[in-house]
Every structure is written in structure tokens, then in C-alpha cells.
Amino acid sequence: MGKPVHSAAASALGYQHQTWWALLELLRANHLRPDAAICLELHDDIAWEQAGSATELLQVKHHQKSDRQLTDASADVWLTLKNWMDTAMPCDTDGPALVLVSTQQAKPGSAMAALRPQTRSEQVALSALERAALHEASGRIQDAREQFLALGQVDRAAFVSRIKVMDSSPHIEDIPALVRTELRWNLPPGHEDLFLAMVWRWWDEQALALLQKRRRAVDIGMARAAIAGLRDQFTRALLPTVAAREETGDDALITDYADSPFVHQMKWVGYPPVNLRHSVIDYHRAQAQAIRWIAEELVAADELTALSRDLVDEWETEFEWMQIELAATTDEATRQRAGARLLRDLSQRNGPCLQNRYHEAFFVRGQRHELADTGRVGWHPEFRDRMRTLQARS
């Protein structure tokens, strides 16, 4: 059982390396390909597009802690060549450039070494590949070698002329430092790690959309604008959103907070289940956001205290009007509807904001639920009595 697990881990690492390498490609090409866009698993592992047509195809090979060299007999080489012969019109001299990116070092004197940009010799590479193709192999590697020889001399030369090898490329653990270097002029002083975490989160979302075919490509202009937008959140007038909306964690959150006072408060007024679910998520995100802001010294505790005070003042006014309207009503269903309407109406308002520095609605909604969790605000006309009963049981 050990071998398949190891193989799966290496494969997963390779896919992760591929997506991270695509971000590095995107950042490095910022000024070199101003109108280009990058794709994942569309034309190849990674591809550059111009006006919807592929201009460069990249096969990305990752070998963790391997001392083996990239030779003309390597499976990586022949499986890559077969992929390109099957899909990239190898005989077309005007076809997209073909790039093999490998963490392994090309063996001196090999075709792979001859296809490096700095030591390029297409004739040496062609001759070396032809010699390697004459050696028998098995399976798809043998198929690839026979297919290569079947191209004919002129077509083989045309094919090899489009190939470039980028050997000794960085390993996956080196990519974050390289991304940081590419973004060095954008790093907000004092908050570098937080900003980089936000860039990575943005890229993870884009990569997932590319792999799921919800997005065809990410162009350089889009990447530049997104990164600039993240950087702008670190001006003195604004605060960054650092708590992501994690879809996969929703069910766990509902379970974790099932017995929290703020959830009981919503149940006391018969708050609809979908709205209750979203409220739990708002509460969790707002809590995580406030903790991270304080840890990063982006917000002082006094600012959050002032926001809570403003939210309580807003609530007191509306709660008093509700009590006046219900003064002659003892019907529980009516009282519940009034409480639910109070919470709904407040949730739909922009409401107070954090020193005019942050305006995302989820944060204010979450802060209201935090106040409800401590009993400072509530929705049912008798919420105070019920909170005392709830606290006595705990």
C-alpha cells in the first residue's frame, strides 16, 4: 500500500507546483506580455494565449529531492514530446512555442541541455533525440519514440525548433519566495505577510476556476488590477478583507455554533433556516476578521468598541419602537414575527461602519450577532429573561 500513497502524494504535489508556477509565470510576464492571458489544463499544463489562441505551451515537471538528471531517455521527455506531437501540430513552424520546465538538471551533452536558451543548438538536440529514439522502450515511451521517428527529417527539425527546456527550475517550496520577490514593490510596509496571503488566496480562487473550466484564462491586466486592489486596501483609509467566505466549512460552522446564545436568539423569533445559516457564517467571519486585524495591528480595540457602541445605540432605537407597537399584544406568533422583522431590517441596513474604514456588510451583521451572543442586544421582546435562563443552564 505504501507505493500508491507515495505516488498520490507526489502527483498532488506536482499539480500544486503547476498552479503555483502559473502564478509566477503571470507575475514575471507582467511587462513582457501585456496583452497575454494564462490558462491551466486547457491547451497544456500551462499555456499562454493571445486573442484566444495558444502562443506557448508549458509542461511542468516536479521532482522532490531527486538527484537524477534529465536525460534524453527520461520518461518526462518522451511523454512530453508525445503530448505535443498529439496536440500541438509538431510540423507547423508557426505553432506555439513548446517549453519543458523541470526541476531536474539536464545532463551535459544531451538534447535537453542543447535546448536550453543559453546553450541552444537545435542540430545537436535533433541528432541526440534521433539517437535516443532508436533505443527500444516500453508502453507509451516506445510509442512516442516511434511517432517521433515517423515524422520525417524535415518535420522533426521543425518540431525541435519550437522546443525550449528550462531545467533546474525552482522546487515548490521555493515558489513563495520568488512570488514575494516579484511583488516586492507592492508590499505594504509592516503587513507584507498578510498582503501575500491575500494574493495567494486570490490566485487559489482563480486557479480553481480555471481547473473547473468556469474561467478560460486570467490575463495580465486582470492580475495587475486584482493585486493593485488588494494593495489599495492597506491605505490608511481602508482595511483589507482577511476572512474568506469558506463554502466547504459551512456545515461544520452550523454544528459548532448550534448552542451559541446568538443562535438561540434567532430561533426565539423563528428566523428562517437559510437566513440563520448565513448569519452564523457572518458571525464567524466577523470574529475571524477582527482577531486578524488586531493581531496585524490594523485596528485598535478601541475602534471595535466604538463600533459596538454605535450598533447598540442603533438597536435601542428600533427595539423601543417594536416594544411600543407590541404593548397591547400577547400573541407569541406576533411577537416572534416582530422580532424577526427587527433583525431582518437591521441586517439590510448599511448601518454604522468602522471609522469609515470598512464597509463590507457581513462585518456589521456579524458584529450585531456578537452583541446578541453576549445579551447586549436581542430580537425577541423578552430576550433578556430568556438569556438569563439560558445562562443559568450553562
Rank of each mutant, 00 (worst) to 15 (best):
D167M: 08
Q118V: 02
D250V: 15
G95K: 06
R116E: 02
G152M: 11
L126T: 04
D76K: 04
H191A: 14
Q18F: 04
A177G: 09
Q123R: 00
L151N: 04
A88Y: 05
R156V: 12
G139A: 06
D256E: 10
D86E: 13
E122D: 06
S66Q: 01
T87R: 07
S161K: 06
Q142R: 10
D76T: 10
E182N: 04
A209R: 12
T103K: 05
F383W: 09
V274A: 02
R131P: 02
E192A: 07
H17G: 06
F319K: 10
Q206Y: 03
L194V: 12
G249R: 05
L57W: 04
M85V: 11
T181E: 09
N356R: 12
V165N: 07
D35Y: 14
D92Q: 03
R365E: 03
R388A: 14
M112E: 09
K82E: 10
A29D: 09
T80Y: 03
D310W: 01
V377K: 00
L79R: 05
D251G: 02
A258V: 06
A244G: 02
A361N: 02
L40G: 08
H135T: 13
E246K: 07
L187H: 08
E318T: 05
G139M: 05
I141F: 12
G95R: 04
V280C: 01
W293P: 14
V5W: 13
A37W: 01
E136G: 08
A29V: 02
E205N: 13
A8P: 11
D204A: 15
W84F: 07
S7R: 09
L183Q: 08
E25P: 03
D345N: 11
I38Q: 09
V242G: 04
L298D: 02
A111Q: 11
Q50P: 04
H369D: 07
P176A: 07
V269K: 03
H31E: 10
T329V: 15
L371G: 01
N356Q: 13
I175M: 06
R33K: 11
K107Y: 02
E320G: 03
R309W: 04
M222H: 05
K65N: 07
L115V: 01
S66R: 01
V274E: 03
L151C: 07
A226Y: 04
D167V: 03
R245L: 11
